[in-house]
Design a protein around this nucleic acid. Structure first.
Length: 241
DNA sequence: GCGACAG
DNA sequence: ATCTTGTCGC
């Protein structure tokens, strides 16, 4: 048990509305630490993702641990929940974190790093999902987004590995656009907690030997989707066609 | 004020 | 995030 799913509901850590949520992010942002992440030393990387039921009344989180360098599935866990917070850009950690923590809590192995589907420092208050999760777990986390959120960047070179800094409005470098496949649109990498951008980029490249998105994200996406189908099927049987 | 806005 | 068919390419 590497995560305490109840930690997020401790006093002061769970906001009752979007204003409180923003205030909490501003309060916790200074506690995010940047540390060197030695991607070459990573042996276990966990991928995290959440799938939503069509009417958004149920969500399924998945955590899949892959070995490096082979990218074999070592362990996987899921958890489902009702969304406990509305979707607001900049606040979706409050939607996805509860089931993610529960799924992570069901893992028996301890990953060296957690790869989040979303952002870390590339966030309006420098406290995206990856930062939040990393802070709660006190473990290294990075964020990989499929589309830009805050900041702007030049177009990275067309070859795999090419990158361009992602710069926020105030001039701070909050991440980078990274080409993981030649000629395919880039992903957006940012640091979560206890990691650095160089290490995060190196790790993402190790996780993308073939596809645009990290194998960790792909595995978690597939698992959460399958689990969601299973839930829907079970519900259908319970209610009757 | 207006638009844009991770999943 | 999710709803969706075919199509082009390695």
């Amino acid at each position: 048990m590497i995560a305490d799913p109840d930690r997020i509901s401790r006093p002061g850590l769970w906001p009752s509305d979007p204003d409180e949520a923003r205030a909490l992010q501003e309060r916790l942002a200074p506690e995010v630490r940047t540390e060197p992440l030695d991607a070459g030393a990573v042996r276990l990387a966990a991928g995290l993702d959440v799938s939503y039921a069509p009417d958004e009344d149920r969500l399924v989180a998945a955590a899949v641990v892959l070995s490096l360098p082979g990218l074999e599935v070592v362990e996987a866990a899921t958890a489902d929940a009702a969304p406990a917070f509305p979707y607001v850009p900049g606040l979706f950690a409050f939607r996805e974190l509860p089931p993610l923590l529960e799924a992570i809590g069901r893992l028996s192995v301890e990953p060296d790093v957690f790869v989040c589907d979303g952002f870390g420092l590339a966030h309006p208050r420098r406290f995206g999902l990856a930062c939040h999760l990393g802070w709660l777990l006190d473990r290294p986390t990075i964020g990989v987004g499929k589309s830009p959120f805050v900041g702007r960047s030049d177009e990275p070179g067309a070859e795999r590995g090419a990158r361009a800094p992602l710069v926020a409005d105030d001039g701070a470098e909050v991440g980078c656009a990274l080409r993981t496949r030649a000629g395919v649109r880039p992903v957006y990498v940012s640091v979560g907690h206890r990691a650095d951008l160089e290490g995060a980029v190196d790790l993402v490249l190790r996780l993308t030997p073939r596809y645009r998105l990290p194998e960790t994200v792909r595995a978690a996406d597939h698992l959460s989707r399958e689990r969601l189908k299973g839930l829907s099927a079970a519900e259908g049987r319970a209610v009757g066609p």
